[in-house]
Every structure is written in C-alpha cells, then in structure tokens.
Design a protein around this nucleic acid. Structure first.
Length: 188
DNA sequence: TATGAGATCAACT
DNA sequence: GTTGATCTCATAC
C-alpha cells in the first residue's frame, strides 16, 4: 500500500506538484478516485486568486502548504484546491476532474446522475460529488476527511491551456491524464 | 454539435 | 454595478 502524501510533498513548485498529482488518489470521507485533471496557479499569475495579495477569501493560500483552499465559484459551485509552494508563495492547484472509484453510490446521489463520466468531470461537479464545501476550507490534506495517495504506476501526462479564465489564458498550466474519458474537456 | 441564458454571491471597481 | 478558476438546460442548426 502506498504511503499518504505528506505536507512536505506540497511544499514545492506547483509545476512540480501538479503533474505528480495526475494518477494520485483523492478521497473525501470515503468518496473519490483517481485524479485525472488539475490546473496550477501561482501568486505571480494574474489569473490566480492570490495575485492581488492576501484577503479574507484567499488567506489560506498565504499559509503553509498541504491545506485545502475552497472557494465559491459563480455563486453556485464550490471548487477544491491544494495549497502548494513554500509558505508565503501563495500557489495552489485546482482539482478539476477525477475518475470515480470509491463511494459511487453517494456521489451519484449527490449529483443526481448515473454516468460515472459526469460525476467528477469539472471542478464544480467534483466538489459536489465529494461533498466539499466551505466547511473544508483550511483543513489539512494529510488528515481525515481527506485521504491522498500517490500513484502506484507511471502515467502519460498531457498539458494544455487552462479553462474558463480570461487573464493569462495562454499559459499551459493545465495537466491531464492522456486519453482519460473522465476529463472536463479533451486536451488539444 | 454549438451557442446562449440563468442561477446566485463575494470580491472588486 | 460588474465580473468570475462553472454547470445545466433550452433552443437552433
């Protein structure tokens, strides 16, 4: 059995951590699966929530790495991020999609859908399926309800431009599992 | 398949 | 008052 990812794992550049998360397992209170798509954000990046400096919303990004940053998107959805980088660098990785493997029944109930490809194929859907809300803001990723396990086999990783943003939209900071049917959108 | 509106809120101008 | 790291449903080709 692989050992859970430690806080030290997250205390590195988002560009190192992000590709290593592809194929890793994320569970929240027993629901989740294999991560197939993430996006990296950094304080120097105009698209990042930390770009403008510390605020009440993004405060956890300016603290130590290895914690959850959860924010409300478009007033409707919740989105889950992992805080990375050495403390103060205010980087984070948005978890955009995963392949559901555990807790399928509960995820289907929360989403009101059957097709496993639609359960977690987008940041808002993923948070809904895993039951992630503001209550998870600032929680450590190496303790319950979170479980994070490294991948156990090599994977093929593809990169592309990030989705749904207008600033710095040309940066290739989206990482995905090649050919996965569980992505929010295919890679070009 | 593709495009568009609505939902709904916190942070920003 | 406007915008956004989104999603779903409706309508149009």
């Amino acid at each position: 059995m692989p050992k859970p990812l430690t806080r030290r794992f997250f205390a590195r550049s988002v560009h190192k951590v992000a590709p290593e998360l592809i194929g890793a397992t994320l569970l929240v209170d027993g629901c989740g699966g294999r991560i197939v798509e993430v996006e990296a954000y950094h304080q120097t990046d105009p698209a990042a929530h930390s770009y403008i400096g510390p605020t009440e919303r993004n405060a956890v990004m300016f603290g130590p790495p290895g914690f959850a940053y959860v924010y409300r998107s478009y007033g409707i959805h919740w989105c889950l991020n992992f805080v990375c980088e050495p403390e103060g660098s205010a980087g984070a990785i948005l978890i955009r999609a995963l392949e559901p493997t555990k807790g399928l029944a509960r995820m289907r109930r929360r989403r009101g859908l059957d097709d496993p490809r639609d359960l977690c194929s987008g940041p808002g859907k993923l948070a809904q399926a895993l039951g992630v809300t503001h209550k998870h803001y600032g929680l450590p990723l190496d303790r319950p309800p979170f479980v994070l396990l490294p991948r156990t086999a090599p994977v093929e990783i593809v990169t592309g431009v990030r989705i749904g943003i207008t600033k710095a939209a040309d940066l290739p900071w989206r990482y995905g599992l090649k050919g996965s049917p569980f992505l929010s959108k295919p890679f070009r």
